[in-house]
Design a binder for these strands. Sequence first.
RNA 1: UGGUCAGUAGCUCAGUCGGCAGAGCAGGUGGCUGUUAACCACCUUGUCGGGGGUUCAAGUCCCUCCUGACCAGCCA
Length: 462
Amino acid sequence: MRTTPIVVILTGSAPAGRVRVQGWVRTRRDAKDFSFIEINDGSCVANLQIIASASLASYAETVSALTTGSSVSVEGDVRPSEGKGQKYELLATDVMAHGIAPVDYPLQKKRHTFEYLREIAHLRPRTNSIGAVMRLRSGLSFAIHSFFKEQGFFYIHTPIVTTSDCEGAGEMFRVTTLDINNPPRTEAGVVDFNKDFFGKEAGLTVSGQLEGEICALALGKIYTFGPTFRAENSNTPRHLAEFWMIEPEAAFYRLPEDMDLAEAFVRYLATYALDNHGDDLAFFNERIDQGVISRLEGISTSPFERVSYTDAADILMRNNDRFAFKVSWGSDLQSEHERYLTETFFKKPVIVYNYPKEIKAFYMRNNDDGKTVAAMDVLVPGIGELIGGSEREERYDMLLNRIRDIGLDEKNYWWYLDLRRYGGTPHAGFGLGFERLLLLATGMQNIRDVIPFPRYPGNAAF
RNA sequence: UGGUCAGUAGCUCAGUCGGCAGAGCAGGUGGCUGUUAACCACCUUGUCGGGGGUUCAAGUCCCUCCUGACCAGCCA
């Protein structure tokens, strides 16, 4: 007999008839002549209630031995529930245990802290919260591809191992096959990376942007969606050492089109979550964050605020008395400033654009005012920076001067400069941190709980 | 990495002024029975994060180390 997912049974317009379900026991309650068994198979947040009669052949040996966490196959007939709280239930004709969980099963029938669940990452996907996160994560991953396909973007695979550092994006993890206890050295005594596997220093990518630009200047519109690594000693609820980033890049786009794309993208994903993950969102709204659905509805329906850095700085300077760090034109926006703009002043997602060039990366396009670059950040309530993007400097001389001005070695960027020499075009793109999007979509507080196996300083178990 | 707070039973936590180690849940036994984190009664469970110090006496005060969370920085 084929197995029926619990989500299919519970969302059916009529009882599903004779079925087999397979999953894990959440709880068992014994009545006089039968037991209630609630099982969850991961297909949805809801459990299926099983009625296991004491007259079953397997009752004494199997049913009465079932504990929270045990795995079972159950066959029976779906029928309308006699009790309150569920539409259907399964009257079992056979209950078979695959594995009985001993009494030291770490997940109890009660609320656990997320800190505790991180210590048992091999079992936490069986919880309602993490299960819902992972289903939504899967759904939004699919939606990302749908959006870009609909918009005519091609999915590009940029390298994980790289020898180019996207300057300013962060510290890289080193990739090497050298013997770290006895590396080859040059006559000067420094480690000789010419003898390393790739013939030079290599690391894990901190961004696919530079390679993305290569492909955009051939295919027009592209995006990447892959793992990204930052070896920063960051200890916050918003940072991971390994995270997934979406980076679209489009030839002939300028900053306004880039902002339009970012806004349409976030709105599409919010709408997708509301339309396709209502049950999981209802769970988050009830148990995690009572504002999450209304926030997604706001994103889905109302335009983002757009404000230039200069105007944003004016707003902040008028309220300087409320900040620990006072704002003046040219200062970088601190977390408290970003959150004031999006959470207090505008109370919705805000796109800040045209930042002072001194506080932004070398590849961003200089504006004609000589002071600012065509950069933009999308700030959202509760998180701060969700997206960072820019129009790229496509003018060869301007880019070369910028590289020299800030002391980078132009030889390391020869191919990046070549793109400007051979048929360069205006182009723009941005990076969106997938886990930060999931924080927004779930209302979860810590980024370590929206990825199955989080990596952060001191932690890469599992 | 800096700042703040925390670490007590398997889990979630209380523990007052330094004076016998506690509750709920989980687990066990019995009862009840269409339950919903089932319910009722009784019972079991401790390296009070590690080390050192002060004291007649330390979960409690001091020093130190470890671990975690939050805030800040780095950014997505």
